[in-house]
Design a protein around this nucleic acid. Structure first.
Lengths: 128, 128
DNA sequence: CTAACTGTATTATTAGCGTAATACACTAAG
DNA sequence: CTTAGTGTATTACGCTAATAATACAGTTAG
């Protein structure tokens, strides 16, 4: 995992886990990695991880019983909203950036498709 | 003009002018506002404006002869690239945020159109 | 039981960046 | 010439995030 400098690392960690939940790679009730272990893996300070986990708790994405590894929430409604939150936020930022520039839908779709292809990801959803 | 807290103000000022140039509201050779005047209008510190102008000079968007108001570059190739830079950057950020989430083109276009409509802007390009 | 692991809390320090205050040099209009 | 306006440079301040070092409390595997 690589971080960009502009966004706080702890928020990037939050987003990282949000994506995992949205993708189903982390399911309701799954155990989260230990804070110390994750900090070691990501080569960041345990306190930064702690802040990220605190943030996720505040957002009710995870729950923690005392002195037990945190777990992904079992609240289905919360989990169900994660994906749309990510997408909606991204759309809002995107439109904010290009609005007024008179970009055609065709141009947008074309560029987005192109950008997808630069990754090595499955593009069946956007690719056709 | 309103600023968000996360992005540095001076970069938001740069983007503001980039958009103006991309839209043709600022044309090649046009005089830029005075740094102090602009700072006063935007209610920000003159040094913040100075930093923004310095950034625009580094990007060759404007040129300045000593003790004269800055002017929009007359370099056509630079001006021609501004719009595509803005759009491409926005697309890159956007795709980065939602890739792997398996979002269909239809869903994206639908959401983008919706978002456009929340503004009071002319949506003839994306609206149909 | 004990040892090693959980999460949590507190405090301090550091580094970087954005912002601010001020002074300087030059130009141009009156 | 003088004054008010340019852009420029230097220095310092303040905030935030990240790190760091500890300490504490509880659980669990051996």
């Amino acid at each position: 995992m690589q971080f960009n400098t502009r966004t706080p690392v702890y928020l990037q960690v939050v987003d990282y886990f949000k994506k995992k939940m949205a993708l189903g790679k982390l399911k309701a009730g799954d155990e989260m990695p230990s804070r110390r272990e994750l900090a070691n893996d990501l080569k960041i300070n345990p306190n930064t991880v702690q802040k990220a986990f605190k943030e996720m708790e505040d957002q009710q994405l995870i729950t923690t019983e005392r002195n037990r590894p945190s777990r992904v929430t079992t609240d289905g409604t919360v989990l169900a909203q994660i994906r749309s939150e990510i997408v909606d936020d991204a759309v809002a930022v995107f439109v904010e950036a290009i609005q007024e520039l008179d970009v055609s839908v065709d141009e947008l779709v074309d560029k987005i498709k192109r950008q997808y292809k630069e990754g090595t990801y499955d593009d069946r959803s956007v690719g056709s």
